[in-house]
Computed example of a mutant assay.
Amino acid sequence: MTGRDDAGRVRGALTRVADNPAARLYLAVCAALLVWAVVDTAFVRHDDASMAGVWPFAATLPTGLLVLAVPLPGNRVGAVLLLALPAAAALVNAWAISAVLRRLRARAARV
């Protein structure tokens, strides 16, 4: 297997996940929320706690609740997982959005 085959598979999988504008918009919003949470945590000083880290998980509900059940280590691996888990939840939700819209389109085409 070559690198091109793997890239084609990844591209095909991402196409199935986000094959419509609604799923792409959802993924863009989730990515923007993750970037905002990272920037807010890294560069903005707060007197109290910031709620920026909550929004990526709120945007990925209900799948985001499932990933909160994963115990995270208290090191850099935990920080990476804290970013990767809502990203994975967003991909699952985008796949669900795409699947529902595909089903609705197929039903509308039959009528």
Results as ranks from 00 to 15, higher is better:
G3E: 06
T63P: 00
L61Q: 08
V111T: 15
T2H: 11
M1P: 03
P21G: 07
A106I: 07
A42N: 10
A84F: 06
P86G: 06
L101F: 04
A49R: 11
P21C: 08
A94Y: 04
R11E: 08
G78W: 08
W36Y: 14
R76H: 12
M51S: 10
L68K: 05
R103M: 09
A90W: 02
A22I: 09
A52V: 04
N93L: 07
V92Y: 09
L91N: 03
A18R: 05
G64V: 00
R76Y: 13
T63K: 05
D5G: 05
D19H: 10
A13M: 14
L25T: 10
G74S: 14
A37T: 00
V38W: 02
N75S: 13
P62S: 03
R16T: 10
R16L: 15
R105I: 02
L66S: 02
L65K: 05
V44W: 05
R16H: 13
T63E: 08
G53D: 02
N75W: 14
V80R: 09
D48H: 09
A88D: 01
A109D: 11
R11T: 11
P73L: 10
P56L: 01
L68G: 01
R76W: 15
L101K: 09
V80A: 15
L27C: 06
A90E: 01
R110N: 05
R11F: 11
V38P: 03
F43W: 14
A89K: 07
P86N: 03
A31M: 08
A58E: 04
L33D: 00
V100G: 02
A18D: 00
A52N: 06
A23M: 06
A32H: 01
A108S: 14
